[in-house]
Design a protein around this nucleic acid. Structure first.
Length: 584
RNA sequence: GCCCCCGUAGCUCAGUGGACAGAGCGGCCGCCUUCUAAGCGGAUGGUCGCAGGUUCGAACCCUGCCGGGGGCGCCA
């Protein structure tokens, strides 16, 4: 596997372990050298020896081993840090190992392939997708892509809200409109309007409300006519979701829809299993489980209500059934819930109840990958100027419109280079900007939606990285050869210029950045890396002529650096679900 | 009242135990005869919310407090 940190790690880890089993080497990139090894400090404390002495000893042994082949300089500094300067030859040798694709570029290979179910806490049927659903789709998509790239087997499940009391009112509204007109309206895409109209009727007309309630009963009893109407509503919604997902460019489709209704047949069994496990308690007419560690307003135990006093199953029951289904039928080793942070307590309770019920016998992990809200530029919840929710389709349309004016309006006309690809570039830049803005900050924070910033070519943005990538390809177009990374791998000279050296280091750090991102379900770590790589490349590009380099072998070597950069940028962006246009 | 998340430069954010805390934007000063200047370089800018504690070492871990957001039994 390419990469420098693993080599340094390999050179030092056994030595620390030898002095004290389990003692880590603590290898990190350094600001004072290339890498630093910090393990001597905590180890010295444990051994009761001076830290510098321990560091000297470890370094001497390492140097006798493989380190001399890797580094041109190694010294103990400060209280006991080991600073390493990698030789240019070793860098060139490592660069030559790079191959196309995530794993060839250093992606980690886990010791066990996991079966992972990723739950996108989906939108509600009969409602429009809006910004609130953006984060789940975008973050979930990036996580799925990363997990797949390291070799895990991923099952996507879009857990849409396609069941519940609301559907009584929606079906009844559909009946009032007449099926034909309703079908037309739903096909036109005005799901929000349909929902609002149903809601309004429910609140204003007691007769309608009564019929809606009766309709809920018919729905729950599976009355065929009602079911058919319900199905048509759900289908219409899924059609729209499918379009939005396609347009967003996420790996989600109608095939991944596993709505709440799917679990209806399993709910009785879930409840009886909980009952057999002795977990079920009746309280005020509702069936509850009281997992320890959760308290309500008054300090009393907080229930997870699986069936309400009216005899209806709650979403807690559905979520528990989903855990059962995923671990049992799908044999999931890991279930990742890409769901907003406000659900954290609910999910924690569901996870705990699943554990108490004895459903997790194979060491299955249930993980909540939570995220914050989308805020407008003013720092408040993101809304339209009129105060309504922003529809996803309109948001994407605006992104492309803004991206177009940025792309086409640049430098007076070099956009002609784009030829007929303008639409494609505009799409890649627009949706890429939105996705990257979302992914590039720690997901647990609320994130501020700001058109100007996300579409800027300066700073940690998608367009900046895409631009760096396009510049790489521009060099190859000019060189008039379709150079591929694999064909270039023998051409690296030891990097001599500081800009070459820094670029090489960045290229060889992909593996660590990717591993950190995937381990922590933290796409922003990959974003930060890509921004750093793009920055290093741009500096290199400014200082080091490629095609006009003074010697033929230097031209080839720099072309090889460019090829590797292009490969890492394109691969990294792809892992985030972002396209890398050839020209901008 | 209890629980969870957040609080780092004017703004937006990285960094969550290791050596003087980083980046982008905005403002200031420079750089296009030469592969895309949609760019690059430089200078400036911080009591890491506050106070204790643990540690050889704390923005990072622990406790308390302050500020912002969210959650806390029959909606999902």
């Amino acid at each position: 596997m390419p990469g420098l940190v693993p080599l340094v790690e390999a050179a030092f880890a056994p030595l620390f372990d030898q002095l004290r089993p389990g003692a880590p080497a603590l290898v990190r990139v350094s600001q004072r050298a290339d890498y630093q090894v910090d393990g001597a400090l905590p180890l010295a404390k444990a051994l009761g020896r001076p830290p510098r002495e321990v560091a000297e000893e470890v370094l001497a042994k390492a140097w006798e081993g493989d380190l001399a082949a890797l580094c041109e300089k190694a010294e103990v500094a400060g209280p006991g840090f080991i600073n390493l300067t990698v030789s240019a030859e070793a860098m060139a040798a490592q660069l030559a190992v790079l191959r196309p694709g995530a794993s060839g570029l250093g992606a980690p290979r886990p010791d066990r392939t996991l079966r992972v179910v990723v739950d996108y806490g989906g939108p509600n049927a009969a409602k429009q997708m809006h910004v609130g659903h953006l984060r789940s789709s975008i973050i979930g998509d990036a996580i799925v892509r990363m997990l797949e790239a390291v070799g895990h087997e991923v099952v996507r499940e879009n857990h849409i809200g396609d069941w519940g009391a609301n559907f009584g009112m929606l079906v009844e509204h559909l009946v009032d409109l007449g099926e034909d007109r309703a079908a037309h309206e739903l096909a036109m895409g005005d799901l929000e309007g349909f929902y609002q109209a149903a809601r309004a009727a429910y609140e204003a007309d007691p007769g309608f409300a009564e019929r809606a309630r009766a309709r809920v009963v018919m729905l729950q009893s599976g009355e065929p006519g009602t079911m058919a109407l319900w199905r048509s509503l759900v289908d219409a919604s899924v059609n729209h979701f499918d379009q939005d997902f396609h347009r967003l460019g996420v790996k989600l489709s109608r095939d991944d829809v596993v709505g709440e209704s799917y679990y209806n047949p399993m709910l009785d069994r879930v409840v009886s299993e909980l009952s057999e496990a002795g977990l079920l308690v009746e309280s005020d007419g509702a069936l509850c489980v009281f997992p320890p560690g959760f308290a309500n307003r008054d300090g009393a135990p907080l229930p997870l209500i699986v069936r309400n006093s009216a005899g209806g199953y709650t979403y807690a029951a559905t979520d528990l059934a989903a855990v059962r289904d995923r671990t049992e039928r799908l044999r999931a080793d890991l279930v990742v819930y890409v769901v907003g942070l406000p659900q954290s307590q609910h999910l924690a309770m569901v996870f705990e109840v699943a554990r108490m019920a004895g459903w997790l016998t194979r060491g299955e992990q249930l993980v909540h990958v939570g995220f914050g809200n989308v805020l407008g530029p003013d720092g408040k919840m993101f809304r339209t100027r009129q105060g309504g929710t922003v529809k996803l389709s309109e948001l994407l349309a605006e992104a492309e419109e803004r991206a177009r004016s940025v792309v086409v309006g640049r430098t007076g006309g070099t956009a002609q280079d784009l030829a007929g690809d303008v639409d494609e570039v505009v799409r890649a830049v627009g949706t890429g900007a939105i996705k990257y803005a979302d992914l590039s900050t720690d997901r647990v924070r609320d994130y501020r939606f700001d058109w100007d910033r996300m579409l800027s070519l300066d700073g940690n943005t998608a367009p900046y990285i895409q631009y760096a990538h396009a510049r790489v390809l521009s060099i190859f177009r000019r060189a008039g050869e379709a150079t591929r990374l694999a064909e270039r791998s023998g051409d690296f000279l030891p990097p001599a210029d500081p800009e070459e050296r820094e670029l090489a280091k960045a290229l060889l750090s992909f593996g660590e950045a990717f591993a950190d991102a995937v381990d922590g379900f933290a796409p922003h770590k990959l974003c930060g890396y890509l921004f750093d790589l793009a920055s290093q490349f741009t500096r290199f590009y400014e200082k080091c002529p490629v095609l006009n380099a003074p010697a033929a072998d230097l031209v080839r070597s720099r072309l090889a650096l460019c090829a590797a950069t292009g490969a890492v940028l394109a691969t990294g962006l792809d892992l985030l679900g972002i396209q890398a246009p050839e020209r901008m």
